[in-house]
Structure formats: structure tokens, C-alpha cells
Design a protein around this nucleic acid. Structure first.
Lengths: 148, 148
DNA sequence: CCAATTAGTTATACTTTTGTAACCATTATT
DNA sequence: AATAATGGTTACAAAAGTATAACTAATTGG
């Protein structure tokens, strides 16, 4: 195994992270009423479908009480809903509502507005490169980092 | 200009962000005494060299009072230092100390430990792909998102 | 059946982040 | 010289994240 490649990848990702943090999370906070935690929860639901409270916590490395609070707020605005699990009465399954799905997409759209305006500054070659590269990073990271 | 490519890139980056958030920021918080904001500030200093308080705020889209607080804590632990600007007595320039540089690297190392352990699960082909792709994403994003 | 475990909530406390307004010192403008 | 603008700090407030303990309800394992 090539340790140096892993080191380089980690260094790259650590550099990328604050750039995305600033370009995505900050606009998301200021332009919408939803909290970053709420967006993370909805992202997990979008990817995995229905999730129990505990599953959400595992997905996001969040303590359960934190999940409770975030889901409470998402229910208040009607973005997700609770459903009792027929097989285990302790379990509460969370799923997105149509309203949640719609708003999730529109929030992402508005949050990435600034980001997109800067992407438009790129030349065709860089745009092509970034299209492929970001897709590859996304897919590979999803396989190793997005386990329920 | 190809709007669909920009949309795809934005979607990819928005998907990547929470994965990095969970894999990098969370371990960083739990394993070290430093705050995410402190790491962001040190990252900016590492990249740009000496920065004024206002420059740091612009770099990270942070209000100035927040920068003051973060820098205060970084000074307490000896990671950065203040220097008066000889050309403008209002300006206070911040630079990293040797201790700060050393610890910055070791914190990054420990924060990426979990991440690296998961990267090692990848096959050679994926590892190669990710090495190139993450490097490309990093470099292109730096050119458009990392302006002082 | 009883003890141990698991799922989820409630309560509490603390830290970090975010935002704003007021303030002082210095520089730039006119 | 007076005014405006800039750089930075102080003070304050509110929202969000983080963490832990205690608790109820339900399931599992002996």
C-alpha cells in the first residue's frame, strides 16, 4: 500500500474543507432559516431514505440528544416526519416530506449561488477538469465515508 | 458558458462538504484542544503568510470581533503572534510562531488519522484516481475561493 | 421471569459561532 | 483643521454545536 498517496489525499482534502465550509455552509446559514445540522440530517435522509434517530446519529457522528433537537425543528417546519417502526416499538423512523425534499433542493440551490458565480470565472479546460475531478472525489468518498 | 457543468460541480461539492465535515472537523475538535476557527485562521496564515486582523476576517468571511477572540486564544497557547505594522499604526499583523507551525501540522496529522484509515480501504486504481482528482479540485478551488 | 441492553427523550451545562453596536486610535479626504 | 473612513477591540446577545447524566419504554438474553 502506498502511504504517500494517502498522505497527499488527506492533505488535499484538509485544504479543500475550509474552502467549502466558507463557500457553502456560510451562505446556507445566512440566506435561509435552516441550520447546518438540519441540512446535514436532510442530506443523510436524501441519500439513505428512511433512517431511525440512532442511524442519523451514526451517519453524522452526532450524539442522540443533538439529533432529537434538530429533528424536532425539522418537524416544526414540516420538512420531515416521524413514523413508528412496526417491527420495534422503540424505534422512530424519520423520513422527508415532499415539502422537505422541495425545500432541500431550493436551499442547496440558493446556498451554491455564490459558489456558482465563482465557478463561472473558470475557463473551459478548468471547468471540464473540475467537473470530472469533483465527480470522482464525490463518488469515492461516498463509498468509504458514507456508511450508515 | 456551460451552465450544466457548473450545476454539476456545485452539486458534487455540496455532497462532498458534509463528508469532509464529519471526517475532518469532528475528529479535529475531539482530539485536540484547538477550535475549528483556530485551525481555519492558522490555515489562512499558512497559505498567505502574515495577515492583518481584517485580512483574516476577509479570508474566512468572519466578523472582526470573532477574529479578535480566536487570535487571542491562539496567542495564549503561543501558536501565533501580533506585530505592529510599521506603515500603518492601526494595523496589527498576525504571523505563526514555530510552535504554531509545528502544532498545526501535527493537529492536521492526528485529525486525518481516521480519514486515512478509511482511505487505506481503497484499491490501487481508486487511490490513484483520488490522488489526482483531489489535487485538481484543491488547486482549482484555491484559485477561485482563496482570495485575500 | 429478570437482568441487561437498546432507542429515544429530557435536562443541563458549556463552548463555539455569529452578529451587532459602541468605542478608541489612526489614517485619509477635503 | 475638520470630517470621514479604516483597523481593531470591547461588550453584549443569541443561536448552534457538543457532551453527559438520568430517565422511560421496549427488546433481548439468560
Amino acid at each position: 500500500m502506498d502511504k504517500s498517496k494517502v498522505d497527499l489525499i488527506a492533505e488535499n482534502l484538509i485544504t479543500i474543507h475550509p474552502l467549502l465550509y466558507k463557500s457553502i455552509l456560510k451562505p446556507m446559514r445566512t440566506q435561509n432559516s435552516i441550520t447546518p445540522g438540519g441540512m446535514f440530517v436532510m442530506g443523510s435522509l436524501k441519500r439513505h431514505g428512511v433512517l431511525s434517530m440512532s442511524d442519523i446519529g451514526k451517519c453524522l457522528s452526532m450524539p442522540k440528544p443533538h439529533v432529537t433537537g434538530i429533528v424536532d425543528r425539522l418537524i416544526e417546519v414540516g420538512y420531515v416526519e416521524r413514523q413508528n417502526d412496526p417491527d420495534d416499538r422503540r424505534v422512530i423512523n424519520i423520513s422527508m416530506t415532499d415539502k422537505g425534499l422541495t425545500n432541500f433542493e431550493s436551499i442547496k440551490k440558493s446556498a451554491s449561488k455564490t459558489l456558482k458565480s465563482k465557478l463561472l470565472l473558470l475557463g473551459d479546460a478548468e471547468l471540464d477538469t473540475l467537473t470530472v475531478a469533483s465527480q470522482q472525489v464525490r463518488e469515492i468518498l461516498l463509498t468509504i465515508l458514507s456508511k450508515k
